[in-house]
Design a protein around this nucleic acid. Sequence first.
DNA 1: TCAATATATCGATTATCTTGGATATATTGA
DNA 2: TCAATATATCCAAGATAATCGATATATTGA
Lengths: 118, 118
Amino acid sequence: MNSVSAIDAFSALAQPSRLEAFRLLVRHEPDGLPAGEIARRLDVPQNTMSSHLAILARAGLIASERHSRSVIYRARIDGVREMTSFLVSDCCGGNPELCAPLVAEFSSCCTPETANAC
Amino acid sequence: MNSVSAIDAFSALAQPSRLEAFRLLVRHEPDGLPAGEIARRLDVPQNTMSSHLAILARAGLIASERHSRSVIYRARIDGVREMTSFLVSDCCGGNPELCAPLVAEFSSCCTPETANAC
DNA sequence: TCAATATATCGATTATCTTGGATATATTGA
DNA sequence: TCAATATATCCAAGATAATCGATATATTGA
């Protein structure tokens, strides 16, 4: 991750339809959803959503795989990790205690044992 | 955090000068830097940087405090946490194991014990 | 090969963002 | 109060992005 790809990722998420599409795909991990289904659920024209999905994919935030006539999109959680990590990287290196809130958030919310607490 | 404020945060970081300003402030936690110093270090005109800082502040990613003639800006790491948390929230609820990579990243990089490993 | 289905690309219009000169406001010391 | 310093706001030009109708491409079953 570098400045250019970070800009791509933040730009990709800085648009309502794309942000919601990404969050929809996050909720549908690990199965993903076909492009048309995403467009339908978010009530966005098919071609508009197709452009948006292409932007998310170029930014490394979603991945696509053709399944017969459909193209299935999936969220790339790793993309979020890379993006966030880039954002706070030197904070961690120099003053690790400052990132504690981030660790706390993901530790308490995302580990299987404590998931129902969030 | 909701869709609107998430869009504000992502938009704020989706611009080179603002992204670098934020990362500069992250590296200068917890002291912060005066507005003029940020502009100078990133080689951006003072008024342009002032607009950018205002956008980051409105997005909740930085905070300002006047110190005599200077305005000191500081990164709000919590802002990053809120933003990232919003992005993957329902993934955590439904399938917590999918967020494991995020937890792993921050746990291994940002805790005091393992900080030098990153 | 043809029709049906699913998705992607093209292109033009409209809207939004970025930039920085000029200028305003805020604070301090003399 | 005045000059110096630090930051913010205004505004207009240029650049960039969003939207969606029309159309192209890809895949399947008949």
